[in-house]
Design a protein around this nucleic acid. Structure first.
Lengths: 176, 176
DNA sequence: GACCTTTACTTGAGGTCTCAACAAAGTGTA
DNA sequence: TACACTTTGTTGAGACCTCAAGTAAAGGTC
C-alpha cells in the first residue's frame, strides 16, 4: 500500500547541472521521494485543519493557537511578546491577529502597569466560549487525520523525528 | 537532548470539559506533546524554506513548486488543471500564481488547441534560469534542515508515516 | 438542435501574513 | 543629565491565498 507510492515513475532531475558546477549535494532518489511526501503531507494536513476550523468555528488555525496559548496562561493573560515568543509568531503577525480577535470580542487588551511599552492580552468569556466550541471538532479532525492512522510506534518515531528537527529549527528549544 | 523537551511542564487541559459532555476523544498527554512538536516543526520548517527562497531567489515556496512541476512536464508545458491536480493547488491559487509568474517573465500561456477551455503553461528560458539559480540554495537548505539531521532509519520512518497519512489526506494517492 | 450538466479557468473581494519603517518606553553609560 | 542602544509594539503596503460568483466551452440526453 505504501508500496504503490514507491513504484511511481521517478521524477526527472530538477535542474540541468549534470557536472554539478554548483557543488550542491543533491537529494538521492530516496530522499527526494521522502521530501515530496513530507511537503505534500504538510500542505494537505495544514489545509485540512484550516478548512475545518474556518468552516466550523470561523477562525484560522493560527487564531486557535492563540486562544489555546492564552487559555493556558495564568489569569488567561499574557504579554504580547511573551505570547509571540511561545507561539513562535512574529510580533507583527500577533499584533494583526490579536487586533482581529479583539474585533471578534474574544480578547481584551490593556497597557501593562510594570512596563508601559507592553500590552497585556486577556482571553475573556466569549473567547473561552469560542475555544470550547471549536476544540471538540478540531481534536476530532486531528485524531481522524493523524492519531487514528498511526501505530503507537509511529507516534513515538514521529515525536523523535520532530524533536530532532526542532533542536535546529527552534532557537529556543534548548532553554525551556 | 530530545529528553529535555519531554521534561517540559505539562500543558493544562485545553478546554474545561471535565465530564466530557461533548463525547470527544481528547488527546493523551503523549499525543498532545507529539502534536505540538509536529505543528511547531511544520510551522518553522515552512517558514524557513519560504524565507530562504524569498531572500535568495525572490519567490515563495509555492512558486518554486510550480517551476519544478513545469520543468518535469514534457516540453516544459502543462495544462493549468493538470498542473493544479499534480500540485494539489486550487485552480484559483494556480491562476493567481501563474499570472504573477508570467509578469516575472518565467512562464508563458496560450490557449490549448484541442480544448479551448484549457490553457497551456510553458516554462520558458528565463523560468528555467530562475529555477536553476534557486535550486542549489533550496536543496542545501533542505539538507541542512532535514536530511543532515535524520538517520537513514528515521528518513525511512518518516517516509512510512507520510505515506500512511497521505493515504487518507490525498484523495488521488491511490491512482497514480 | 435545445437543454442541462460538467469541466476549465478567471475574477475580485476580503483575510492573513511578511517586511520595513516607525514610535515610544526602558536600560546603560559617561 | 544626556546620549546611544535595546526592547516592545504598531502601522501600512504589498503579496499570497481562499472563497464565491462568474464566463465560456465541451459533453451528454431527449
Amino acid at each position: 500500500m505504501a508500496q504503490s507510492r514507491s513504484r511511481r515513475s521517478e521524477p526527472k532531475a530538477i535542474v540541468s547541472d549534470s557536472n554539478n558546477t554548483t557543488g550542491t549535494r543533491w537529494l538521492t532518489a530516496n530522499e527526494q521521494q521522502t521530501w515530496r511526501a513530507l511537503m505534500l503531507t504538510m500542505q494537505l494536513l495544514d489545509g485540512r485543519l484550516d478548512r475545518q476550523l474556518q468552516r466550523d468555528a470561523q477562525m484560522p488555525h493560527a487564531y486557535y493557537g492563540i486562544l489555546v496559548g492564552l487559555s493556558e496562561a495564568p489569569d488567561n493573560t499574557c504579554r504580547m511578546s511573551d505570547l509571540a515568543t511561545r507561539l513562535r509568531y512574529s510580533q507583527s503577525r500577533l499584533t494583526h491577529a490579536v487586533a482581529s480577535m479583539e474585533r471578534n470580542g474574544w480578547v481584551e487588551r490593556r497597557r501593562c502597569p510594570d512596563d508601559r511599552r507592553s500590552q497585556l492580552v486577556t482571553l475573556n468569556a466569549a473567547g473561552r466560549d469560542a475555544l470550547a466550541t471549536a476544540a471538540p471538532g478540531h481534536v476530532t479532525e486531528v485524531r481522524a487525520a493523524v492519531f487514528d492512522r498511526l501505530s503507537s510506534t509511529q507516534v513515538g518515531q514521529l515525536r523523535e523525528i520532530c524533536d530532532t528537527l526542532l533542536a535546529d529549527l527552534d532557537p529556543s528549544s534548548s532553554d525551556e
